[in-house]
Simulated scan of single mutants.
Amino acid sequence: MQIRSAAKSDAEAILAHCRKAFGETDFLMTEADEFNLTIAEEEAWIERSIRTGDLILVAEVDNEVVGMLNFRRSKSKKVNHLGYFGITIQEKYCNQGLGSKMLKQFLEWAEEEPGLEKICLEVFAYNQRAIHLYRQFGFQEEGRKVKHIKRKDGTYADELLMYKFVK
Rank of each mutant, 00 (worst) to 15 (best):
M1T: 10
M1C: 07
M1W: 07
I3W: 13
R4I: 04
S5M: 12
S5C: 13
A6M: 08
A11G: 10
A13I: 06
L15M: 12
L15N: 12
K20A: 13
A21H: 05
A21E: 06
T25H: 14
F27V: 00
F27D: 01
F27Y: 12
L28H: 04
A32N: 07
L37T: 03
T38F: 07
T52L: 15
T52R: 15
G53T: 06
G53Q: 11
L55R: 15
I56M: 13
I56F: 11
E60C: 13
E60M: 14
M68E: 15
F71I: 03
R73G: 08
S74R: 04
K75H: 11
S76M: 10
K78L: 10
H81G: 11
H81M: 08
L82H: 08
L82F: 01
F85H: 01
F85N: 02
T88W: 06
I89N: 03
Y93H: 14
C94M: 06
N95H: 10
Q96M: 13
L98N: 03
L98C: 04
K101P: 00
K104P: 04
Q105A: 09
Q105I: 06
Q105P: 03
F106L: 08
E108M: 03
A110D: 09
E111K: 15
E111A: 14
L116G: 06
K118S: 08
L121S: 01
F124T: 00
A125L: 05
A125P: 05
N127K: 02
N127F: 01
Q128E: 11
A130S: 12
I131F: 02
L133Y: 04
Y134M: 03
G138A: 13
F139G: 05
Q140N: 09
E141W: 06
V146T: 09
H148I: 00
K150R: 14
Y156P: 03
D158H: 05
E159H: 01
M162Y: 02
Y163W: 11
Y163T: 00
F165T: 07
V166Q: 08
V166A: 13
K167W: 06
